[in-house]
């Protein structure tokens, strides 16, 4: 028995009917074609599937699409605003915060929340905040470096793209 859901994804209202067992990550990738969000371990450990649900990062492999009904989802595809990459995306690019790139979308989504909660983290706090994201290439060094660089950029321009993204999430669209 399919269930109707209405989810605002990256600012756009998506109405659909899903099987109750459809995971949010499958809904995003297969229904909406948003394949930036990856499936890694599929056991809530690796964080490749992290998206923001009403602003909070969640592992979309451990959330049913029906649980997101009425909520706002931001995926990696929704971070750039008006063609400008989010400062965290820029920082990962500039600092080569990736090796194979498979964990990158999840890493970036986690970092956006981490910097929102703690705009000036230490390297140790960044590492602790990334506990739920695994880089199997072990490329953590540049990921931490990129996060610290993003924190600096965002502190220098607090009202720019980040504010827009967060406002979008907070209002659900």
């Amino acid at each position: 028995m399919k269930v109707p859901i209405k989810v605002t994804v990256n600012g756009k209202v998506c109405e659909s009917e899903v099987e109750p067992r459809t995971l949010l990550v499958h809904f995003l990738r297969e229904e909406l074609g948003l394949t930036g969000t990856k499936i890694g371990c599929d056991t809530s450990q690796c964080g490749a599937c992290v998206v923001r649900l009403d602003g909070a990062t969640v592992k979309s492999c451990t959330c049913l699409a029906v649980q997101a009904d009425g909520m706002a989802v931001t995926t990696i595809e929704g971070l750039a605003q008006n063609g400008n990459l989010h400062p965290v995306q820029e920082a990962f690019w500039d600092n080569h915060g990736l090796q194979c790139g498979y964990c990158t979308a999840g890493m970036i989504m986690t970092v956006t929340e981490l910097l929102q909660r703690n705009p000036h983290p230490s390297a140790d706090e960044v590492r602790a905040g990334l506990e739920g994201n695994i880089c199997r290439c072990t490329g953590y060094h540049n990921i931490v470096k990129a996060t610290l660089a993003a924190a600096e950029t965002m502190a220098a321009a607090p009202a720019s793209t980040t504010a827009t993204t967060e406002a979008t999430e907070a209002t659900g669209g």
Partner: peptide
């Protein structure tokens, strides 16, 4: 408990 995403849900 767990990690930030687990604590969020």
């Amino acid at each position: 408990i767990g990690d930030p995403q687990v604590r969020n849900r």
